[in-house]
Structures are given as structure tokens and as C-alpha cells.
Design a protein around this nucleic acid. Structure first.
Length: 827
RNA sequence: GCCCUGGUGGCGGAAUCGGUAGACGCGUCGGACUUAAAAUCCGGUUGGAGUUAAAUCCAGUGCCAGUUCAAGUCUGGCCCAGGGCACCA
């Protein structure tokens, strides 16, 4: 074996051998239980960044660990390759998005292979290839037939910079998720997927996901935004009209003093008197001009204007005025709000500004408030509420809504914040939505045997203000599949998140050309046992994928409810305390690390300093330290005259004569146990790596105290080193493979069984008894672990230190924790 | 405002059940080897008091209380940081 560690050389060598042997191919049928380990697939942006390295290393170690533990592991990779950057690059360089994407995929594939990741490349999926997007289109048509895809005119989010509409989930603080440009509202006819049909089950089934962290589940629950309340209808005095409102506080209905409708409310014209028309029009025009950000800002002073009309409160017979104000949102509830200034802070602020009256109807019986200074929003007892007086407000919610139900002017209502998913994009580089428009027959789905609807090649990417796809001479005009007459193709393409909502299913059967996937294969491999990716998809991709799985289940295409059984959201990779980014100039190029230190160092380091879920601060010194550590391991193996090879006798309890050898044997078993538990328990790779180091330190320490090794020494040394490289093999994949073969291994180390520990050996031969006086440590005594409680107590009391310290004091009591500690309480 | 996560040395972070706080690493200081350097190996490194040196003592896991023989860990109240949601009626 060579003296020096040349990672570049051995890494290249083994990557080639693994590839030639097809070392990581996953058979569909096997006696072993299945395990599906998955990383979120990347957008082929050009080069891997450290976030990718962290993500894929974590998943790779999990996959390898599971394989060594007897699982048939599916660990695939692919490309989320539709999307705007390719199109922007095409416009900028005059290239084709496809060429740009293909080049990036080729380069990044090379990088992934250099990282030594154990992918089954036969199952690679690329969402921009016709053999994939054919099935994206096919699935869209199934959803369409089921009524889950529909087209409607609606106020939608428009990003001028990207030249397309966006889904609600893609608007972050009123800005585009991709380019940060402020998003505007536009009225357009667009395609939607009916995710709202699944709002309740998407919320409920979060409880079926104990393997997801609470923060992701809470984020999804908040996004779905379920609330329980009532719809109450109010008759308009001046017109033959009703205004329904949604409220979660029907208990406060006797305290209504006015009613607000959103500026975009559908009946607002009818509700406005001629005298108020001018002011209302002006107010609405102003509201339209405001951006979402301005309008939704909570610290903005509320404004509004009266409409001049009035409603009747069916509970009290009181008459109250109608207003319009932009704090009412047209897209939530009914677009109208009953205002109870005494018990709602927003209504209170508004009423105060416009001098509207206030009526207290809920009170804390112990400290009644007149609500003159602030709204009372806590629970309480009803007052000024006729027959409901004295009732607890929670009971009153039900009773008051029931009265509306009985009287025909209201109903119980569950409301969600989740809106339908807008999936049309006015861009070229996406899967074409497979429908055509016929003047006679209207919207017609493209027949399945005509799929895929291919992206045209004859397009001009330099056009501004419209989708490049519309410049194609061959694409637009087609014939109607229904009547055979002339028809126009849909020119919108699908949101890339549609493509990524089902890719994890395709891996189970990536080459199927009859179906997106065979049902038996998808049912066999799914759900994903461990999914790993960034927290930025907590809502977007993860919510859409859950929806897709449930919708496809209802279409009969698969038989499970949730796609991802366990989810690990890895933290960001930071440098100098902030996120690595090109604009900050604090990025570290993975290629450089591979070149200078090798992939094993990169893998070891990216796992070493922080638990996976936490942010990771990159440090050059840390990389250096990991490289030195691998060299230290290497030197251990290259001093190989002391090895007796891979076949040595089984080492059980009491099999070794020398105490230091028995001790080393125990340390190895402690390491196996600790490392196995740390990986099994939330993938705590940082402590796994510290345990590698502890074991290596122990072996060095043992070796430094010996000159020549006798037979027993060689056996225990070989056992320690061989076990070490097995334990390290999921992380330092190349170094351990090289070492394994040097020591005489014939198969790959990645196919060997994970080491097992012996509980009798995975502990020290004696215990350290901690002696406390009044809870403070005063002495430590080496003791036999077989000692009884009484013996431990006597041992503690016999300590010279203890004798000295309890001199002249009274022992109140003594607590003995077996095998661990004695606490003597004295006065 | 509501929800989630976290707060431990100079730094990243350890610490199944409440039972030795600071594993392991980085940095740093000192030593060995070397003509020298690199590499490597060994040792110190929470703060304070104390000592020629040691022994030793005291304090210490964001803050304030509490439970307990014993609290980083449990309970109550607060403070701070990061993230999410937000005129959602």
C-alpha cells in the first residue's frame, strides 16, 4: 500500500470500477425489504453548490447505511429541468434552452459522480424530455377529466420581470419567489388545479406524518388556514339584496355597528347610493393602484368610505351602515365583514377613526370593560344579547349560528385560506398544457394517443411581452379532435412545480412508455422512506406533491395516501455567518474542494460540524482538519505489516488475555453501538464523526504503548481497524474501499454487512463511581460493576475525601444510583 | 400580533432516563522530532480565587422563580435571536 494518501487517484479509480460493475443498480425484485432514500432533485443551473453537496451526501450516507443493514435500497437522481433560467439564458446568449439545459446536466452529472454518490443512473428522470413530460401532460388530462383541472378568469399574480403569472405559493412578501420583482394583480383566464378540494385531508393527514418535523407541518397547516365559523346573511334596507358575511365570531353578532365590503366586492355598485358614488369610485380606483404590499401592510392606517346603504341585523332589528374598506379582502370568505368594534381590534381602529359607534356584548364577569380604549377579544360571557345573555361565548357561537340556520339567514361554515393552484405559465420552457380551443367545440383535451404535445423548435426567444412559443409557425394551428375543424393550441405551459409533483413516482418505473408508472411498482417502492431537502420547499413542492399523491390515489393510479414518510429538512450552508451566494462573493466551489482534498474530505466535512437540520458554517480550517483526519486513518492502514488479514477469530467476552487488548476491544464495540444509534436516531452525523475520531485516537493510543505486536495484539488490532473502515465506509466511500481491498477484501466494502456490537462488550470493564455530597461531586472511585447498592454506599463512605468532608456532620440520607453514583446528604 | 425553532467556552457543537457540564473538532499556547521548515506525535486550554508549582475552593448551560438528595435536562413567568404566517374577519 502506498505511503501517502492521494485521494484524487483512488477516487477516480473506484468511481470507474463502480460504474463498470453497475455497483449501485437496484433490482425491482429482491428478498430484502425495500428502502427508498431520496434527495430533492436539482434544477440544472450549471454547477453544484455546497447546498447540493450537503443534501446529496446526507442522503447517500443514509442509502449506504441502509444497504449494509440488509435493505434493497432505491436511491435515484434526476433533473427538475424546465423553468425560466434556461429560457433567460437562451435569450441572453441566443442559444436554445434545451442545449443550455443539456450542457448543464452533463456537467453536473460529472460532478455528482465525482462526489461518489451511489445513484442508480438507469432510473434517471429529466422533466424536460418528451418521454417524461408526455406523462406530465397525461396526468394533467386525467386531472382535467376528474374536474380537478379547470380554466377560469381570476385576479392573478403577475410578475412583469418574468413575464408570467405565479401561484400564491410563489409570491413571497408580495414579491416573485424567483426574481424578487413586485407582483401585480391582473385579471386573466388561467388554468388551475383544484387543490382546495383536498384542503381538509391535506390538513388532517399531517397527523399521519410523525417523521416530519413540527415546523414544516405547522407551516403547511398555517398555509391551509382552516377556520370554523358561520355565514350570516344581512338584508339591505334600500335594495332587494342580501350581503352574506363569513365570521368566526357569531357570538358577537349583537354588537355589529357597521358592515364592510371589499373594494372589489361584486355587488358594490348596487350597494352604493348615487350621492356616494363619486367617493366610492375614487376609493376603489385608489385601491386598484396600490400594490399588494402596500395594501396588506398591517401598520397602515385603515381607510374606507360609506356606501350610503344600510343593513338590518336579524338578531336585534337594528339598522347599521355599509362601508367599503380595503381591510376587507375580496378573495377570502364572502368578501364582506360584519364589524364589531368592541371585540375586534381591526374594527375597533376603523370605528375610532370614523367615529362609528361601539356596543359591548362580551364581558369578563370578573373585570368588565367598556371597550373605550381597546377591543376586548378574550373569551367571556354575553351581555346586551337578548335571550343569549349570560351564556358562555363559546356556547353562544353554536346557539347563535343555529338560530340563523333555523331562521334561514345563515349556516355553519368551515373556511380555508388555501386557494387553487394556478398552473399556467406564459413561458416557453415548460410542458405544454395539452388542450386545444375550437370555435365550435370549445376547450378540447388533446387525445392521449397524440401525446406528447411537443414543444416547437421554430421559436424566436428575443420577443418581449409575450411567450416565445406564440412565435412558432407550426405550433398554434391544429385541428379539433372533436369536429376536425380548425383549432388553436393552448400556448401556456405548466408551472415546473407540476413536473416535480410526481417525479418521485416515476423513479419506481422510469422507463415505462405505456404509463407514467406501473401500479405494482409504484406501490412497491413508495412511499419514500426518507426524503431529504431544503426547508424552502416546506410549502411549495411538499404541499403540491402531497396533493398529487392524493389525487392520483383517487384516480386509482396508486394505493397510498402520503408520498414522503420521513422528511429531513437540511439547514443552509453558510460562510462567515451568512448564506453562500454569488452576490455576496462567499461561495466555495465544490470542484476546488474535490481537486485539492478529494470527495471523501468534502463528504466528511459537510457532515461533521453541525447536525443535518441545522445551518452549517463552512470553514477552510475545518476542511483541512478533515483532510488531516483521513490521512491519519490512512497511516493506520498503511502500516500494514501488523495486519493478519480479514479472517481472525471471533472475539467474545474474556477472549483476550491482556487488559489493554480487552479494553480496545470494548472501545470498538462501544463505537459500533454509538455510531449505529446515532445514525438510526435522526441521522446525527456530526456525533458519528466524532466517534470515528475517538476510535482512531484510541487505536493510536493503544499502538503507541507497544513496540512489537504478538499474535493477540495483531488480532485485536486487525479487528479494530477493519471495523473502523466498515463504520466509515458510508462516509469516506473511496478511502475505505481502497483500504478494504488492500487488506484482502474481494467484494466491495459497500456490500459487506454493517458491524454488530455485543452488549456485554459495549461498555467499560469497570465503572467510575461518582461520589457526591449534597449533590456536588467530591470524589470518583473505580469500582466493579457487580457491587450491590449497599457495597457502593460503603465504598463511597470509605473514601478519604468523603470522611474528611462529613466529619462532625450528620448523614440525613444516602441516595445510590446503581453502577453510577452515590449522593450523601449531610447537615 | 399568532405559530415554530433555538439560546451551553474564543468558535462549531457534545451530554438516552433528571445523575461527572463542555465529548469530538477548530483556534490557540507549550513540548518532542528536525540543521531548519512542513508533516507528524504528545500535553494544556470555561471564568475567578489560590500556589514557586501543585493541591484545593468558588461560580457557571439567556434571565427570574419553583420542584428535587440532584436541573443544561422538569414546571411557571420573562428576555433575546432565527424562520414561517398575517387587516384571513
Amino acid at each position: 500500500m502506498k505511503d501517502a494518501y492521494f485521494p484524487q487517484e483512488i477516487e477516480k479509480k473506484w468511481q470507474k470500477i463502480w460504474e463498470e460493475k453497475g455497483a449501485f443498480k437496484t433490482p425491482d425484485s429482491s428478498d430484502k425489504p425495500k428502502y427508498y432514500a431520496l434527495s430533492m432533485f436539482p434544477y440544472p443551473s450549471g454547477k453544484l453548490h455546497m447546498g447540493h453537496v450537503r443534501n446529496y451526501t446526507i442522503t447517500d450516507v443514509i442509502a449506504r447505511f441502509k444497504k449494509m443493514n440488509g435493505y434493497n435500497v432505491l436511491h435515484p437522481m434526476g433533473w427538475d429541468s424546465f423553468g425560466l433560467p434556461a429560457e433567460n439564458a437562451a435569450m441572453k446568449h441566443g442559444a436554445n434552452p434545451e442545449t443550455w439545459t443539456d450542457e448543464n446536466i452533463a456537467y453536473m452529472t460529472k460532478q455528482l459522480k465525482m462526489l461518489g454518490l451511489s445513484y442508480d443512473w438507469d432510473r434517471e428522470v429529466t422533466t424536460c424530455k418528451p418521454d417524461y413530460y408526455k406523462w406530465t401532460q397525461w396526468l394533467f388530462l386525467q386531472l382535467y377529466k376528474k374536474g380537478l383541472a379547470y380554466k377560469k378568469e381570476a385576479a392573478v399574480n403577475w410578475c412583469e420581470e418574468c413575464g408570467t403569472v405565479l401561484a400564491n405559493e410563489q409570491v413571497i412578501d408580495g414579491k416573485c419567489w424567483r426574481c424578487d420583482h413586485v407582483v401585480e394583480k391582473k385579471y386573466l383566464s388561467q388554468w388551475f388545479l383544484k387543490i382546495t378540494d383536498y384542503a381538509e385531508v391535506l390538513l388532517e393527514d399531517l397527523d399521519k406524518l410523525p417523521g416530519w418535523s413540527d415546523n414544516v407541518k405547522t407551516m403547511q397547516a398555517n398555509w391551509i388556514g382552516k377556520s370554523q365559523g358561520a355565514i350570516l346573511k344581512f338584508k339591505v334596507v334600500e335594495k332587494d339584496l342580501e350581503v352574506p358575511v363569513y365570521t368566526t365570531r357569531p357570538d358577537t353578532v349583537h354588537g355589529i355597528t357597521y358592515l364592510v365590503v371589499a373594494p372589489e366586492y361584486k355587488d358594490i355598485d348596487k350597494l352604493t347610493t348615487p350621492e356616494n358614488k363619486e367617493a366610492v369610485e375614487a376609493y376603489r380606483a385608489n385601491a386598484r393602484k396600490m400594490t399588494e404590499i402596500e395594501r396588506l401592510s398591517t401598520d397602515r392606517v385603515k381607510t374606507g368610505v360609506p356606501l350610503g346603504t344600510h343593513c338590518i341585523n336579524p338578531y336585534t332589528g337594528e339598522k347599521f351602515p355599509l362601508w367599503t374598506a380595503d381591510y376587507a379582502l375580496v378573495e377570502y370568505g364572502t368578501g364582506a365583514v360584519m364589524a364589531v368594534p368592541a371585540h375586534d381590534t381591526r374594527d375597533f381602529d376603523f370605528a375610532k377613526k370614523y367615529n362609528l359607534p361601539l356596543k359591548v356584548v362580551i364581558q369578563d364577569p370578573n373585570s368588565p370593560s367598556d371597550c373605550k380604549n381597546e377591543a376586548y377579544t378574550e373569551p367571556g360571557v354575553l351581555v346586551n344579547s337578548n335571550e343569549f345573555d349570560g351564556m358562555n361565548n363559546e356556547d353562544a357561537k353554536k346557539a347563535i349560528t343555529q338560530k340563523a340556520v333555523n331562521g334561514g339567514f345563515g349556516e355553519f361554515k368551515t373556511q380555508y385560506r388555501l386557494r387553487d393552484w394556478l398552473v399556467s405559465r406564459q413561458r416557453y420552457w415548460g410542458a405544454p398544457i395539452p388542450v386545444v380551443y375550437c370555435e365550435k367545440c370549445g376547450i378540447q383535451p388533446v387525445p392521449e394517443d397524440q401525446l406528447p404535445v411537443l414543444l416547437p423548435k421554430d421559436v424566436d426567444f428575443s420577443v418581449v411581452g409575450k411567450s416565445p412559443i406564440t412565435t412558432s409557425k407550426t405550433f398554434m394551428n391544429t385541428t379539433c379532435p372533436c369536429c376536425g375543424g380548425p383549432a388553436k393550441r393552448e400556448t401556456d405551459t405548466m408551472d415546473t412545480f407540476v413536473c416535480s409533483s410526481w417525479y418521485y413516482l416515476r423513479y419506481s418505473d422510469a422507463k415505462n412508455d405505456k404509463m407514467p408508472f406501473a401500479k405494482d411498482k409504484v406501490n412497491k417502492w413508495l412511499p419514500v422512506d426518507q426524503y431529504v431537502g431544503g426547508i424552502e420547499h416546506a410549502i411549495l413542492h411538499l404541499l403540491y406533491s402531497r396533493f398529487f399523491t392524493k389525487a392520483l390515489r383517487d384516480l386509482g393510479l396508486l394505493d397510498f395516501d402520503e408520498p414522503f414518510k420521513n422528511l429531513l429538512t437540511q439547514g443552509m450552508v453558510l460562510k462567515d455567518g451568512s448564506k453562500m451566494s454569488k452576490s455576496k462573493g462567499n461561495t466555495v466551489d465544490p470542484d476546488e474542494i474535490f481537486e485539492n482534498y478529494g470527495a471523501d474530505t468534502a463528504r466528511l466535512f459537510i457532515l461533521s460540524d453541525s447536525p443535518p437540520a441545522r445551518d452549517f458554517d463552512w470553514s477552510d480550517a475545518g476542511v483541512e482538519g478533515c483532510y488531516k483526519f483521513l490521512n491519519r486513518v490512512w497511516r493506520l492502514i498503511s502500516s500494514n505489516e501488523e495486519f493478519i488479514g480479514l479472517s481472525y477469530p471471533e472475539l467474545g467476552c474474556g477472549s483476550l488475555k491482556k487488559k489493554e487488548n480487552d479494553n480496545l476491544l470494548r472501545l470498538v464495540h462501544i463505537a459500533i453501538k454509538g455510531i449505529t444509534n446515532d445514525i438510526s436516531n435522526d441521522f446525527q452525523f456530526n456525533t458519528v464523526i466524532s466517534k470515528y475520531r475517538e476510535l482512531v485516537n484510541a487505536i493510536y493510543d493503544w499502538r503507541s504503548k507497544k513496540s512489537d505486536l504478538d499474535e493477540e495484539d495483531k488480532i485485536v488490532f486487525s479487528f479494530a481497524v477493519v471495523t473502523l473502515i466498515k463504520l466509515m465506509s458510508p462516509v469516506a466511500v473511496h478511502l475505505t474501499e481502497e483500504a478494504w481491498h488492500e487488506l484482502g477484501g474481494e467484494t466491495s466494502i459497500h456490500d459487506v454487512e454493517w458491524p454488530k456490537w455485543n452488549d456485554n462488550l459495549a461498555k467499560a470493564s469497570s465503572i467510575t463511581l461518582v461520589v457526591q455530597i449534597n449533590g456536588k461531586v467530591k470524589d470518583k472511585i473505580e469500582a466493579d460493576e457487580a457491587l450491590s447498592e449497599e457495597e457502593l454506599k460503603q465504598l463511597a463512605l470509605s473514601s478519604e475525601k468523603v470522611k474528611e468532608l462529613i466529619e462532625g456532620k450528620t448523614i440525613v440520607k444516602t441516595i445510590v444510583v446503581p453502577k453510577k453514583l452515590v449522593n450523601i446528604v449531610v447537615k
